[in-house]
Design a protein around this nucleic acid. Structure first.
Length: 675
DNA sequence: GAGCACTGC
């Protein structure tokens, strides 16, 4: 999300930094008064444990640190490592699940070490490497370290890897658990300098981590969290959204002004309706503080996102109605009360069918506690759970890690590239379904990235595919575009597909949006339409006003442009000549088909479509430019299950191209070619 | 004739 709040540890807001060649101790190098900074450091709970931590860090290969919010572990432990001499043999790398956190933490620690970001302390995130030869401590996104492992299997640049926010269990962190464990063992066997591993987590499930890392010692760090009183519903509630509304209303009538409320709901629609209801209710309550209700979700325009940080005027009350962005990604100030609906919208992936689903489900106990904690950041607070104690007890204790819920094609290809030969028996902290790994290997085999699904050996093609930070299907399409002389077009389309939604259709201006879209619409479908949008965007030199007039998401277009730039750079590195086919879309669609053939569908006699690989009845999504048309054969980027199974990102192709792309595959799968 | 939790390379 584009917000720049303080991160999970109360860091200052993000600033843009470039490495500076000036000496680190020059005047004005740090952005705050050094004495204040040192006072703040010494007040952190973790500071008192420096001696013990230093002892453990130097004497043990692996350490688990459990720290509550506000313990200061994320900023201090890397510095302790540095002071203990661990940076003499290599970098201390600290991973974060989010870019903003990596960048702002580097800034904070650079201030503490009285240097400029990019010198002793740096960061590395996608599109931005702010490190230098002087760098000793490097904050980075977990995905970035995983990318580095592709070119440096043994992580030789690092003496220490700190995996922070381990409890969040992102796919990247989960894979890194296995990688660092393996690297530590290999380096030991080869008599190379030892790799220190530090896992930092807020989890209660300590044994799980410790057991996985061979009984590694655990150090507990106290936090600076205020107590939060938890209240449960007396009876199970039929409609958690309505019950949340009632809870907020009651709170509002009893609690003093300037005690702000945070409500957790599942999605945009629900949030907007709750915001409207609360505003209505707020008007009709005499004698209550004035109510300021603000929504918060990731797709909200930045300007409106910033509303949540604005200080509540005296005598008023702010109610923030949010998705789970407020659980981890955004730290909100001054929250006294949390109202927890107990529900969340989560993505699920069905390995056999390639189906993606967004499902509203109950949260885990871990999530419930995370939400609760949001009320105790600045003072004691209260959390109102809109479910009973019994319902809470029945919730699963931990959130199912992402690696067990997503497609593994990309991860599997990465593991193979890093040198993990037997992916099925990779040492996962929590093993994904065997079926999911098999499905990923089958897909990689179809794409020509591995020799066989049973005994997978990476092919040269697979190695080239892995150099792109993309779903293997997309990487395959880019590599195929070389033969068709249209890499420029394919890269552009894939960059646009990798970004978030570009075409906006606000319900209030639906007609105008659709009318504005007409000039971009291509008869071949969504991918070509997006290409036209991007060409227009470039023609007006990325003009923001133009984006607004045409109902295009400017921020997402800019992001797509950045991805495009990176992909073109990678093409150059892979000696892929970037040709263009101009107005001819056939070579482009042929290339796309060469990667996306596992996602193809054909028209049946009764007017709907059937997927070629898995024989499912599917429909063209109403947001597609091909909706209401009946193309004989299409490829698509995503299959979404809602009221029906919908194809999104649809592109008209010729069945012959699919046959060309994967003759073997289509010999065993139904494909009708009209003659 | 629908509906967009959230990150990330």
């Amino acid at each position: 999300m584009a917000l720049h709040p303080g991160g999970a540890n109360g860091e200052p807001p993000l600033k843009k930094h470039k490495p500076s060649p000036s000496p680190s101790h020059g005047p004005g190098a740090a952005s705050a008064d050094p004495a204040t900074i040192q006072r703040q450091r010494q007040a952190l709970p973790v500071y008192r444990l420096q001696a013990r931590l230093t002892r453990e860090l130097t004497s043990r290969p692996t350490l688990i640190l459990i720290g509550e919010t506000g313990s200061g572990k994320t900023t201090q432990v890397p510095q302790f490592c540095h002071q203990a001499g661990l940076t003499k043999t290599g970098l201390v790398g600290v991973t974060q699940p989010r870019r903003v956190a990596a960048m702002s933490l580097a800034q904070r620690v650079a201030d503490e070490m009285a240097c400029t970001v990019g010198q002793k302390v740096g960061y590395s995130v996608r599109f931005e490497d702010c490190t230098s030869t002087q760098t000793k401590i490097k904050y980075m996104t977990d995905g970035m370290l995983l990318r580095e492992a592709i070119s440096d299997h043994l992580l030789r640049r690092y003496s220490t890897i700190i995996l922070d926010e381990a409890h969040e269990r992102t796919v990247h962190t989960d894979v890194l658990f296995g990688i660092v464990k393996k690297v530590q063992k290999i380096r030991r066997a080869k008599n190379l300098p030892e790799l220190k591993i530090v896992v930092m987590s807020a989890t209660m499930d300590v044994d799980h981590f410790s057991r996985y890392f061979g009984g590694a010692p655990v150090v507990y760090l106290q936090g600076r969290q205020f107590p939060v009183q938890v209240y449960y519903a007396k009876q199970p509630q039929e409609d958690p959204v309505f019950s949340s509304l009632v809870s907020v209303t009651q709170l509002h009538q009893t609690a003093p002004a300037n005690q702000d409320v945070l409500v957790f709901l599942t999605g945009q629609e629900e949030i907007e309706s709750m915001v409207k209801n609360l505003r209505d209710v707020g008007k009709d309550l005499p004698g209550c503080p004035r109510l300021k209700v603000v929504p918060l979700y990731a797709s909200l325009p930045v300007q409106q996102q910033m509303e949540v940080f604005r200080e509540t005027p005296p005598g008023q009350r702010k109610v923030i109605v949010s998705t789970n962005v407020a659980e981890t990604s955004v730290t909100l100030p001054n929250i006294k009360f949390v109202v927890d609906s107990g529900m969340v919208k989560a993505r699920h992936h069905q390995p056999g069918t390639g189906l993606e689903m967004l499902r509203v489900q109950k949260i885990s106990q871990a999530q419930a506690w995370q939400r609760t904690g949001r009320a105790g950041r600045q003072s004691a607070g209260a959390c109102y759970r809109v479910y009973t104690r019994a319902e809470f007890d029945a919730m699963s204790r931990d959130t199912v890690p992402e690696i067990q819920r997503c497609s593994l094609a990309s991860v599997t290809l990465q593991l193979l590239t890093i040198g993990v030969k037997d992916v099925r028996n990779f040492d996962f902290l929590d093993r994904p379904d065997a079926g999911a790994i098999d499905g990923a290997l089958r897909e990689l085999q179809l794409l020509g990235a591995v020799t066989s699904a049973e005994q997978p050996e990476l092919t040269p093609l697979g190695r080239r595919m892995a150099s792109f930070p993309l779903d293997p299907k997309f990487a395959r399409a880019i590599l195929a575009s070389k033969d068709h002389g249209c890499t420029e077009e394919v890269v552009t389309i894939i960059a646009l597909l990798s970004a978030d939604i570009i075409l906006l259709t606000p319900p209030s201006n639906r007609e105008a949006a659709l009318a504005a879209r007409q000039k971009f619409v291509a008869p071949e479908g969504d991918m070509m339409t997006l290409l036209n949008v991007f060409r227009g965007y470039r023609k007006v030199q990325k003009n923001k006003e133009w984006c607004r007039e045409n109902y295009l998401h400017e921020r997402h277009l800019a992001h797509a442009a950045e991805i495009r730039r990176q992909l073109l750079q990678l093409c150059a590195q892979a000696q892929l000549t970037v040709g263009s086919s101009g107005q001819n879309t056939e070579p482009v669609r042929r290339s796309l088909a060469a990667g996306l053939f596992p996602c193809a569908a054909q028209l049946t006699r009764d007017g709907h479509h059937v997927t070629v690989g898995t024989n499912q009845k599917v429909h063209i999504h109403p947001s597609s430019t091909l909706f209401m048309t009946r193309p004989a054969c299409v490829i698509f980027t995503e299959l979404v299950q809602t009221s029906k199974k919908y194809m999104r990102g649809v592109c008209l192709v010729d069945p012959d191209w699919l046959l060309d792309a994967a003759p073997e595959y289509f010999r065993t799968h139904r494909l009708h070619v009209e003659s």
